[in-house]
Design a protein around this nucleic acid. Structure first.
Lengths: 235, 235
DNA sequence: ATCACCATTTATCATATTAATACAGCGGCG
DNA sequence: CGCCGCTGTATTAATATGATAAATGGTGAT
């Protein structure tokens, strides 16, 4: 697959399982089992257990102290923008609250990224934005392909910004969008209006019109926020 | 100190040293030493070495494969927003480029956070913004205290937003600002104009005037960006 | 060119020792 | 009696050590 994978198979499994459980709040009010018990539970040696624990520590999820055992860190210490943590957060059952916060965050990032992309003016990167928008409108696409094109579009904007911190939000956007779009698409009927909005953003960026790009981007996100709010009220 | 600390002393030291070296590009074109050599270098057992390596792996900095050794991951996989990675990035000698990117990122986040803070309207949180602004103007402050008040001000805005992703950027802002403010303060003479700008933001938020808060916040950041750009041109 | 084997390095396991520290128990003292 | 400080002990993570397994690039035989 990717040229760079994670740690070993066993370690990865422990990290994944414990990470999900921690984020799900399973150990919110009590310490994790002691290393020996975790090792037994996963039929692994204490070494791998400890290595897994260290990985979770590095993600800010837990902290260990002799005699006290290992317990979950306060939520403000969690590395929310770590791709793994993010995925676990979403897999614990996506709350509309969290999705709303995602969208508010994107509302901050994306228009600014579009603006930066114009200032940076990397033709190849800007072209990729247009291509993705193109792909969204093209007929004969599966639901899945359309979703991917939509994601690619938003990621392309971040990449074109050339700002490393925005680019870092790529995983956030990718993961969150996959959920978000499914929700919003379920509400709105056809997505033609949506793809028009995307194209408007792409055009504004290509034309170098920062003001128009920002406002078009903002419109799109406001609509998404409104749909989420609507779903929230509907319960 | 803090109720939750990091891993053990030895492990932490290895993580710190290797992390800095990796971020500094020391292993950009060759693999890291093999586990045995790292262990020897740090006079530690292979266990702790491996645990340290796993922590760095969790931060996206490196990847290990049997027979190939351990090498630095492509930069786009690094968890830029991880507090440790961030600190290492800054400690490798602050480049103005990076600082400019920081500021552009903050330009996206902060005005939106201010806007969200108004919508959320948490009186206690908003009061803390005002207090920090107050502290900035009060006379008889050491340089260091004033800097801390400045940082507290910006962090308070993020906290007041109630958005967990913005709050997550707290470490980013805190770390980056500490560098950024030192630079900008060195350029401008006295900071009275600056503290007025801060107070304007606090007042707008307290008054619930989102539009004014956003534009005031934007003004402040634009000024910071201009100063950085100026420093950049000066070489 | 293909395939079996080898060497290297991480991955895992197993066990022992050390260090940190919460907690209980003891003794002193008001 | 009740409170305070000391001390010992048990618990648990931290570190050390050394061995075996698995993965895989390279090498040489066919």
């Amino acid at each position: 697959m990717t040229p760079f994978e994670n740690g070993g198979k066993v370690t990865a499994r422990i990290v994944e399982t414990l990470g999900r459980a921690i984020v799900a709040g399973e150990y919110a009010d009590r310490p994790l089992p002691i290393e020996a018990d975790i090792s037994e539970q996963f039929k692994a040696s204490r070494s791998v257990t400890r290595e897994a624990i260290k990985m979770l520590t590095a993600k800010g999820l837990i902290a260990s102290r002799p005699r006290l055992g290992t317990s979950v860190a306060p939520e403000r210490d969690w590395n929310f923008l770590d791709p793994d943590v993010l995925r676990w957060l979403l897999n614990r059952g996506l709350s509309l609250d969290l999705l709303a916060e995602f969208t508010a965050f994107r509302s901050a990032i994306e228009p600014q990224a579009a603006s930066l992309a114009i200032r940076r003016n990397d033709p190849a990167a800007i072209a990729r934005i247009g291509e993705a928008a193109e792909r969204m409108t093209k007929g004969g696409m599966s639901q899945e392909d359309a979703l991917q094109a939509d994601i690619d579009f938003h990621v392309a904007i971040l990449l074109a910004s050339g700002n490393r911190f925005m680019i870092q939000c790529r995983d956030l956007v990718e993961t969150a969008l996959r959920f978000s779009i499914r929700l919003t698409n379920r509400q709105k009927g056809v997505a033609t209006a949506d793809s028009d909005a995307h194209r408007a953003i792409a055009n504004a960026i290509a034309a170098g019109d920062a003001e128009r790009a920002v406002s078009a981007s903002r419109d799109l996100l406001n609509e998404a926020a409104a749909l989420i709010e609507q779903a929230r009220r509907a319960g």
